[in-house]
């Protein structure tokens, strides 16, 4: 699903160069649930940005679901993000001026889907996260946990192959955090690959595999070995 080889990413200012990723290699198999952990400043977010095609990298190669992303145009990267990746952000990143239905609708509109199909997918995704009855509430009318579940619905509505979660429980209390993790596990069991970026070892333990990043490198990198991970059972319609 995700194959990164010898990726480096350097942030440059007039005064300093920061090597955020250096010789970074990682494989994630289809259907895996991988937790990427590491201390602050270790390069987790840079990894997330590069893996999610939110930023480019300087050297190395990266293939996402068999697509070499190195030379893709900005539009092609946008299309790939839209079709293959679902994002879950720490701060939920819902659009405050849109109701829940319209928030989940946003990525589907960018995919130029027909209205009927969009409606079906939105309803289904909101049902999965248990918010079907709140479709026309505004984000401000929901709790943090509910908002994160809306963000998850938005991420899965497009039926992506790959979910990238950035500290998805960072802004939630423990009960809500557990509910969100349960939901992510449920989605993974349905066949979606998940990469969870977190600094919380408790959450990381719920993943199939942990990858630790220190100083922009995978500290315990091991090539992927086949293991008994769930196969795609049900596509989320």
């Amino acid at each position: 699903m995700l194959a990164m080889r010898h990726i480096s990413k350097v942030y440059r200012t007039e005064l300093i160069e920061t090597h955020a990723l250096r010789d970074f290699s990682l494989d994630v198999a289809s259907g895996e649930f991988v937790a990427v952990t590491g201390p602050s400043g270790s390069g987790k977010t840079t990894f997330l940005n590069v893996a999610g095609l939110l930023e480019t990298f300087d050297t190395g190669s990266y293939a996402l679901d068999g697509v070499d992303v190195n030379d893709l145009s900005d539009d092609a990267r946008s299309r790939l993000r839209n079709e293959k990746i679902g994002f879950i952000f720490q701060s939920f990143n819902l659009i405050p001026d849109l109701d829940i239905f319209d928030n989940v609708d946003v990525p589907l509109r960018y995919r130029r889907m027909k209205a009927a199909e969009r409606k079906e997918r939105i309803t289904s995704a909101l049902d999965i996260v248990g918010l079907g009855s709140r479709a026309h509430h505004m984000p401000s009318q929901l709790s943090g946990g509910q908002q994160q579940r809306v963000a998850i619905a938005r991420a899965i509505a497009g039926d992506p192959k790959f979910l990238l979660a950035d500290e998805p429980t960072g802004n939630l209390d423990s009960l809500m955090a557990r509910q969100v993790m349960d939901l992510l596990e449920q989605i993974n069991e349905m066949g979606t690959t998940i990469v969870l970026v977190t600094h919380d070892p408790e959450l990381a333990r719920r993943a199939h595999r942990n990858v630790q990043v220190i100083d922009g490198q995978v500290s315990d990198y091991k090539p992927y070995e086949a293991r008994n991970v769930p196969v795609a059972a049900t596509a989320i319609a």
Partner: peptide, 16 residues
Amino acid sequence: TRQIGTRRAIGARRAD
């Protein structure tokens, strides 16, 4: 700014 970044992240092209 954050909202625009989010829209871009979830698939909006610059033209969108």
